[in-house]
Nucleic acid binder design. Structure first.
Lengths: 148, 148
DNA sequence: GCCAAAATCATCCGAAAGGATGATGTCGAA
DNA sequence: TTCGACATCATCCTTTCGGATGATTTTGGC
């Protein structure tokens, strides 16, 4: 949370500084309140939404997903297996993305972490699943009903 | 999304109107830019975060639609897809082994060909399926009913 | 506030995978 | 017999994976 506070502080400061600088140089000051107000509002609304999204991002992976495959019933994650293997939510999330065929880099980009982080998650996951390769991890994951 | 735009518009208008009203009555106009900027920033950041939270919360309320086809029916390879993509039997065979999590070397050993051969089969397969990685090939293969 | 689990990131290094290309060999159809 | 599809193998080179290790930061409970 500290990071966020800092972020806001800095951002606010920057915006205000920018406004001051601009005010005395290029823009007419008439009706500036509306203009600047709108500007600030827009910027902070954007940042706010972004932040809000980030805050809750992947809060819980317990969401049950439905599959379009017309041959199988709804997927229900086997919580027992998850607990027995000690697989964390993040690891599950990444396993799913691997099953979708993403590379480590792509996974990092979609969940907003570095490729390195993805790799460490994977290392641990492999160990927990007893897998030597990502394809094997996917196979085991499906077998144990960790992923659809 | 229209609702959000409207919401923001109205809110922005309200805030600015409020500011105007206040400006001419109670507050000193000196340094008002900073004060109002901060105010607007705070308000919109809050609203933004709140909105962001709402957005993701809604996303988590995923509905579970489901098809009621009987449990596992035997797998039937989609010959049409196979023909359409021009995938050869050997390539299919290897794709299945990949889906089981085998490495190229292991596949070569189980099918009695060299690792190099496996690789060329795979290269062609990837091209036909439009896959960049083996995991992706497996995903596509399952999707198109080339493999169970 | 403190602690443990989870998540984050990095670096080094070897192994595996993937791309590009060329060369045989086999077999069935034209 | 010639041609084309399929299968086989190789070499060179780049990218991606995965293992090992160490470290910091968040976070949830107590």
């Amino acid at each position: 949370m500290k990071k966020h506070v800092l972020l806001y502080g800095t951002l606010g400061g920057a915006v205000i500084a920018l406004l001051k600088a601009v005010e005395y140089r290029y823009l007419v000051v008439e009706h500036s309140v509306e203009i600047y107000g709108g500007l600030i509002a827009a910027v902070f609304a954007t940042v706010g939404i972004w932040l809000g999204l980030r805050l809750t991002r992947a809060k819980e992976t317990i969401v049950i997903r439905e599959v379009l495959t017309p041959a199988h019933s709804a997927f229900v994650r086997d919580a027992g297996q998850v607990a027995a293997l000690g697989v964390t939510p993040r690891e599950l999330e990444i396993l799913e993305l691997i099953a979708r065929g993403l590379s480590n880099r792509e996974i990092g980009q979609t969940v907003f972490v570095s490729e390195n982080t993805v790799k460490t998650h994977l290392s641990r996951l492999f160990e927990k699943l007893g897998a030597k390769r990502r394809t094997q991890a996917v196979q085991i994951g499906k077998e144990r009903r960790l992923i659809p």
